[in-house]
Simulated scan of single mutants.
Amino acid sequence: MPNHSQRPRGRAVPSLDVRIERFPIAGTFTIARGSKTEAVVVVARIEADGVVGRGECVPYARYGESVEAVAAAIEALAPAVRQGLDREALQSRLPPGAARNALDCALWDLEAKTAGRPAHELAGLPAPGAVTTAYTISLGTPEAMAIAAAAARRPLLKLKLGAPGDPARLAAIRAAVPDAELVVDANEGWAADTLAANLDACAEHGVTLVEQPLPAGDDAALAAMARPVPICADESVHGLDSLHRLVGRYDVVNVKLDKTGGLTEALALAEAAERLGLGIMVGCMVATSLAMAPAMLLTPRARVVDLDGPLLLARDRAPGLRYEGSTVFPPEPALWG
């Protein structure tokens, strides 16, 4: 990777611009922790010699982040960007999280556009192809979720659960969409005393995968029980240092760039997880195509792809990723990479 700190004389000093942008959600997005009606994203834009690289992140209160604090953390690195900050140096300047994600992905984009080569090639990865993404059904009553699942007409549905009465929700949804593949996301909403019954209901209704059934940090029960459905760590996994405690409790890890702090650590995390025998899910926050695009590089190794953020918005940014139903296509350079 080029060391941007060694700029030839006469080259322009890189500049950093940080923007907070808002995109309305189509309806309301509801999980076990609450609801929201808009996606608030932070975009980092780095320009050098007329070439622009962009990265988008979603600050998440669950991880102690706020939009204002994330934007400020990115802006604080403007002097380092002017001095030629590169991706390797960035890893030690910010912890895993949304702020580092936006900058890391902007640097990948800038490098790809400067080199005139796609990001996957710079990373030594195969070109991503079109993949099927899950489509999220928000938490609601059994009847409302069944109606939404049927109306979606999607081959792969991700069900937001994590509240009392989840077996009834599963039964209603499966009756409404007998042929759809189902993934469940409990968002830490189950407890040790309800875990077995909820997992049995998932197995009964042919659920492929269950995300984060128990609270992160209170998931030891997973190691002591038979798991009738594969369990995926979401809130329990962030960067590389969180992997060691997952073995024996989880079967799959949900790799999200906003948790790992960008594509650089996401790629390292996925490789390390596979060495430990863990499968890979590629996930996202509710955001625009700019946030989904870097994650597409991880999809060839993923067991489940969940990059439906733009599908949940009333409008996406333009240009965006191309979606045909539940099929999402790799980004064009005008968007990212």
Rank of each mutant, 00 (worst) to 15 (best):
A168V: 04
S236V: 07
V282Y: 00
Q91Y: 06
S236Y: 02
A123R: 07
I20S: 12
G217M: 10
G162D: 01
P8L: 12
G140C: 06
L267G: 04
V184C: 14
D185E: 09
A99W: 00
S35E: 14
H4I: 13
A295R: 00
D219N: 10
A134E: 00
L77R: 01
G206T: 10
L156A: 09
E274R: 15
V229C: 11
M292H: 05
E88C: 11
L243G: 05
T37N: 11
E21C: 03
V131T: 12
P128S: 09
V67T: 15
A233P: 02
L156H: 14
R303L: 12
L159R: 06
A186F: 00
L16K: 03
K259D: 03
G325P: 08
Y135P: 00
A180I: 07
L222D: 00
E235Q: 13
A26K: 15
L125K: 04
M1S: 15
P178Q: 09
S5T: 13
N3G: 13
D200K: 11
S138P: 02
A12M: 04
A171C: 07
G27D: 12
E181V: 15
Y323D: 05
R22M: 01
A146R: 06
L16E: 04
C202K: 03
H4R: 13
I31G: 00
A26Y: 07
A216K: 11
F29A: 02
A233Y: 01
P118V: 05
A119D: 06
A270H: 04
S92A: 15
R153Y: 01
R9G: 14
G283M: 02
D251E: 15
L170M: 08
V81I: 15
A272V: 07
G84N: 08
A197I: 09
A32R: 08
A71V: 09
E21V: 12
G162M: 08
A98S: 15
V51G: 02
P164N: 13
A216N: 08
